[in-house]
């Protein structure tokens, strides 16, 4: 692996509300190489979206962060606001989950695209316009130059997400973070957008957040499985699919129809619910739902350890691969 582009060191994130202290991330360590495509998979509420926001520093006022988020050697948590602003949207760009609410409804698409170029690259209005149209064409938005004058509500869901992707690519970022880019879209549009994302992530690093293991596997080289604010398994796509080491990963794989097990067997689902973020159990957070849990699992948090080269898991069970 090349020198890491993004390096998270013991990243912790909690939110202070009037009722409780909610822990969203409980110590995340991650190293992402330049050009590497990483998938982060987990159920909703596992903290994967918060991981993106924490990385980019897009957290609300009541958030408390600790640890380090190093991008290209700069710690974004301690760097001054101007340095972070220079990197965001320029070297680090993000594609959001719901393009309807993530695009400003009061501004035209063109305005929202060109302002990035005019700010980061100081382009003239004309040059920014040309570049924006060029990118809209690259994301295969039909009639790109006309769409520049459209407002977001005048576009379809798929078109809006294309605009979002074009917006993220404007400054040729080195790291692209995509937070469930297809969740808010029709199933028919999903495949197109994923294909587009795959092309877009050539020559740059990608962090793809998804609740769908197979979707992530289609694009990424390495996959992280997240549960209750922690990584429970990290491995290559091949490792995860052929030798899933954590019971939760195995559960996720079994819960997809038509992928494992004989046909006609009732669809498997992991019993129970993920824990509420303000009531994370002591020990392994997955233990209450785990069929193989034993007493140690309920008391002691299993550390993330390497079970074979590049394949990590956080589980007390014997390494029965």
């Amino acid at each position: 692996m090349s020198r890491s582009l993004l390096w998270l060191d013991n990243l912790r994130l909690s939110f202070c509300t009037s009722e409780a202290q909610i822990e969203a991330l409980r110590g995340i360590n991650l190293s992402l190489g330049a050009g590497e495509r990483l998938g982060i998979v987990g159920e909703s509420g596992s903290g994967k979206s918060q991981l993106c926001f924490a990385t980019l520093g897009l957290l609300p006022d009541n958030a408390q962060v600790s640890g380090r988020v190093c991008f290209d050697g700069i710690d974004l948590l301690t760097a001054d606001a101007q340095t972070v602003q220079r990197l965001r949207g320029n070297q680090l760009a993000m594609i959001f989950q719901d393009p309807m609410s993530a695009l400003n409804p009061y501004l035209t698409v063109g305005r929202q695209l060109t302002e990035v170029l005019r700010w980061h690259e100081r382009l003239s209005r004309r040059a920014a316009q040309a570049r924006a149209v060029d990118l809209l064409e690259r994301v295969r938005l039909p009639e790109a130059s006309i769409r520049m004058r459209a407002y977001p509500h005048e576009l379809s869901g798929g078109m809006r997400q294309r605009v979002m992707i074009a917006m993220a690519l404007l400054c040729e970022p080195r790291l692209l973070i995509a937070d469930e880019p297809t969740t808010a879209l029709d199933v028919t549009v999903q495949t197109d957008i994923m294909a587009l994302l795959q092309t877009a992530s050539e020559r740059r690093a990608l962090m793809l957040i998804s609740h769908d293991l197979h979707l992530a596997a289609g694009v990424c080289q390495r996959i992280v499985v997240m549960y209750a604010g922690l990584f429970v398994e990290i491995g290559s796509v091949e490792d995860l699919f052929t030798r899933p080491a954590h019971p939760y990963t195995r559960g996720l794989l079994r819960a997809v129809p038509g992928h494992q097990g004989p046909a006609r067997e009732p669809l498997y689902s992991i019993p129970g619910q993920p824990p509420q973020p303000d009531q994370i159990p002591q020990g392994c957070a997955f233990a209450p739902r785990c069929e193989q849990a034993f007493s140690r699992c309920h008391h002691e948090l299993p550390p993330l350890h390497e079970i074979r080269a590049g394949h990590w898991r956080a589980c007390h069970l014997d390494a029965a691969l």
């Binding site: 602003q85 760009a93 959001f96 400003n104 409804p105 990035v116 700010w119 917006m167």
Partner: peptide, 11 residues
């Protein structure tokens, strides 16, 4: 959400 996007754009 759109203000978060604007922040993500580094404005």
């Amino acid at each position: 959400a759109y203000i978060r996007t604007a922040r993500a754009k580094g404005l």
